[in-house]
Amino acid sequence: MQIQTTAEDQRIAWLAALAITIHILESAFPSPLPGIKPGLANVITIVVLVQFGWRSAAWVSLLRVLCGSLLLGTFLTPTFLLSLGGAVCSIAILWLACRLPGRGFGPVGFSLLAALAHMTGQFTIAWLLFIPHPALWRLFPVLLTAALLFGTVGGIIAGGISNRQRQCST
């Protein structure tokens, strides 16, 4: 039996594979503070969003979380739930952000929104499911600051990649 794949399917598969690789590489580095990661895999999502649209970006993002967790052995563990919550939130906010009329957001705006949404989603799940302690909220602004930093840097990188790609393809 053969599954018919379209060019888009293959593209998504390639990009997801790339994102998963980064995701796994990133998880190998210890994090200075729980919950804070540079989120380099997020860069791929933004590049895909800018170049191929929201649908592809959503696929890449969800495949990354799913396959990444299977490969790392964290599938259905708390880590997976946190990561899934973050991904779903950032995809949702990107869907809204794509609908902004006019020239809309650039890679930096998308990346920033995605990072903030990712952090908020992850934090909410952590708070609801694992540590429903009011003191946890004290961490929230710190985490969002990290998200602001890494989101912006990620967005600048994503913008750089997108521009170069566009130059290559023309």
Partner: peptide, 9 residues
């Protein structure tokens, strides 16, 4: 490379 929406955000 930042759009206006980016800057406002």
């Amino acid at each position: 490379m930042m759009t206006r929406a980016d800057r406002v955000l």
